[in-house]
Each structure stands twice: as structure tokens, then as C-alpha cells.
């Protein structure tokens, strides 16, 4: 992850970790990028009732260079796959991916010639959200999970903890 990898381990970085992670977890900007039906629920999550702004994520960025989070909201067709791969590559690290809905997670009802059976075949996924489409609440819970994941990360090299999240780690908003 760029310059952070040059930082030596030590007390300084440990406290720096928590500050940086706090910042990242509270201002994850998603990419303005909708694919199919799930995108409608993603937009609903962004509007007043569900209010994703509580997570500091209301700023959907159209440019991949300004976004931290890609919400793959819908089915990925064979024609779209190279595009998604490229957009993901254009995002700057650190970056995260939420596979929203069963289509993005595993192909869903479309097990046919046109649709790729899960976006994880082309890009790494951090959180899978079940549902067809997932309710906005589910997406918000996915954001909670992502934040728990973000809080564990460290800015130094090679210290990423890869254990499953414990339930009490996924703190609801405001904790």
C-alpha cells in the first residue's frame, strides 16, 4: 500500500493505525457505479430514509480515482467483466469491494451463457451481501462489516490479520 509499506513497525505506527483506520472507516467513498436491479437499492440506501451519510459514504464518486469502495450492485455480464476489471484497477489502494446481491456474489438466478457466476472471479471481494436485491438495511450491515474489517487493517507491511470477523467486532453505527 504505497508509502505506508516503508514505515517501520513500532509504537508510532500502532497508534497511527488506529487514527488512519478511524479515518478510513468513517469516510469510505463508494464508486458511483450501478449495474442492475441491486443498484436501485443502492441508490435507495443513499437517499434520505436509509441515509448512508451516517457512514460518511454519501459521496458517490464517479471517478474510480477518487473512490475507495466498489459496490458491485448487480449481475456481471461477459461483456461488462473486462470493464469492471479495468475500473477496479484504476481505483487507488487501499480499496474495498462489496458484492451486493446474489448475482454479484454467485451468479444468482442467471446461470447461463451471459452472466459471470460471481464477480469474485475477476476482482477480490471483501463483503458479500445476500439477497435479490438485498434490502438497504443489508447493505448498511455490509458497511458495518466492512468498517470492522477496516479497523483491523494496519498501515505497515505484511501485518494484515486474516481471521474471520467475530460478531461483536461488527459494531453497529455509533459505537
Amino acid at each position: 500500500m504505497g508509502i505506508e509499506e516503508k514505515v517501520p513497525e513500532g509504537i508510532l505506527t500502532t497508534s497511527l493505525d488506529s487514527v488512519v483506520n478511524w479515518g478510513r472507516a468513517n469516510s469510505t467513498w463508494p464508486l458511483l457505479f450501478g449495474l442492475a436491479c441491486c443498484a436501485m437499492e443502492m441508490i435507495a440506501t443513499g437517499t434520505a430514509r436509509h441515509d448512508i451519510a451516517r457512514y460518511g459514504s454519501e459521496l458517490f464518486r464517479a471517478s474510480p480515482r477518487q473512490a475507495d469502495l466498489m459496490i458491485v450492485s448487480g449481475r456481471v455480464s461477459n461483456k461488462m467483466a473486462p470493464v469492471i476489471k479495468r475500473i477496479y484497477d484504476q481505483m487507488l489502494a487501499p480499496k474495498w469491494v462489496i458484492a451486493m446481491g446474489i448475482c454479484a456474489s454467485a451468479g444468482g438466478p442467471f446461470n447461463n451463457y451471459a452472466i459471470i457466476q460471481g464477480v469474485d472471479k475477476i476482482i477480490p471481494v471483501d463483503v458479500y451481501v445476500p439477497g435479490c436485491p438485498p434490502r438497504p438495511e443489508s447493505l448498511l450491515y455490509a458497511m458495518d462489516m466492512l468498517r470492522a474489517k477496516q479497523r483491523r487493517e494496519t498501515i505497515g507491511a505484511g501485518r494484515k490479520v486474516e481471521e474471520p470477523l467475530a460478531v461483536d467486532e461488527i459494531m453497529p453505527l455509533g459505537v
Binding site: A36, R75, S77, K79, M80, F110, Y113, A114, I115
Partner: peptide, 11 residues
């Protein structure tokens, strides 16, 4: 077009 072609008719 076709970036969201999902094969509805064949399905």
C-alpha cells in the same frame, strides 16, 4: 448495448 445482457429469453 449488451453490457447487461443476461440471457432472459434463453433462460
Amino acid at each position: 448495448l449488451g453490457f447487461l445482457h443476461s440471457g432472459f429469453e434463453k433462460t
